[in-house]
Design a protein around this nucleic acid. Sequence first.
RNA 1: GGGGCUGUAGCUCAGUUCGGUUAGAGUGCCGGUCUGUCACACCGGAGGUCGCGGGUUCGAGUCCCGUCAGCCCCG
Length: 388
Amino acid sequence: MSAAEARAVGGFELQARDGAARAGILHLAHGSVATPAFMPVGTQGTVKAVSPAELEALGAEIVLANAYHLYLRPGHELVQRLGGLHRFMDWQRPILTDSGGYQVFSLARINEVSDEGVWFQSHIDGSRHCITPELVMEIEHALGADVIMAFDECPPGRADRETAARAVERTQAWLERCVERFAELTADRATQTLWPVVQGGTYSDLRLESLHRATELRDWRGFGVGGLSVGEPKRAMFEVLAGLSPALPESGVRYLMGVGYPKDLLEAVRLGYDIFDCVAPTRNGRNGTAFTSSGPVNVKLAAWREDGGPIENGCGCWSCSRYSRAYVRHLFVAGELLALRVLSIHNLYFLVDLMRRARAAIQEGRLDAWVDDWLGRYGAEEVESVSQ
RNA sequence: GGGGCUGUAGCUCAGUUCGGUUAGAGUGCCGGUCUGUCACACCGGAGGUCGCGGGUUCGAGUCCCGUCAGCCCCG
């Protein structure tokens, strides 16, 4: 890929390497994304409890939304009629849509997977729908995200080899159909970029096969690595990531889907992965857990009752610049809505900022030392040394 | 002065009719969990001389007597 192609819409511009780790810029129709990067999750076209202005202020450059959920409600055609997802949710920076492949896994009770596609029963009203790779492309095209993910099958993390192999097979067949339908839909203009998803469970050879077959199909500017952090042992996840990383083309951005917690992000960055998404910062935030550089903390703890310090000393986020731990704890204990916003913003800032700092460390060639130092602090202090 | 109702977990109350394992619930308190979001959710823990004192009984939160406290009614 030429330098010009890397800078074109959809291209990934690799700027620096430090060991296996990379720093780069992802160029998309609605702007660029500096990597490594964390993408806040906005499943239903909104990052729960956080406004677009707040997302911008905390430094998010791209958010994720979900095709499956938006198809069911309010409907992708409705979103398209109202000017597309960017306008609908008032977010003018890049958006990546997930296909709904993960929902095949997470909502497995109410669906049937076949070669044709997936029969879902709506979790909202019980109505039945057949989701095919072609339909997923139509949904994601209508929503208008900058990056759209191919429809994949995401088996449970402890799936046996046969199940994982079958998921690779089906994911590949669906990818071919996605490519075909996507080409028809975007024949006139190419503001969207499609990325495949590598599957293969915890079997490194299946992972390589999945990647190989996807790259045989065509050149890609990005690769999703899916089917991880879905119940498999953590060691197995990192073995897969380490085995797959050298085989991934340098010219494509690597998206590790669904990961994760601060530690996992840094380890994955070190292995050469570039972008991430995870519900952890927002969901944990809503449930009262704050990320801090010395580990996650339950803010409802009695120890915070009269703590006048910020959630994290030195944190540059909106929440920490205003509120004391005692106040945040009070908001949670009292069941106040502001509590959800305060911690969601803090946790998102924490991860976005962590990636920003990892990027700087890569550009300065000091990632390993920085990560080791960071991990040494994280969780080093027992639960929490009450600050002041 | 007479009569009635109520006293069980920090709080609000079940359980008392017709006695039967370690007395329950909700809430609060304390703690844990959450990885391409059905989720302000889920899981767990601590906490009670059943107002007090007698009696009956193999066995009493439950039955009997006395007593204290709160509320109500009648004089």
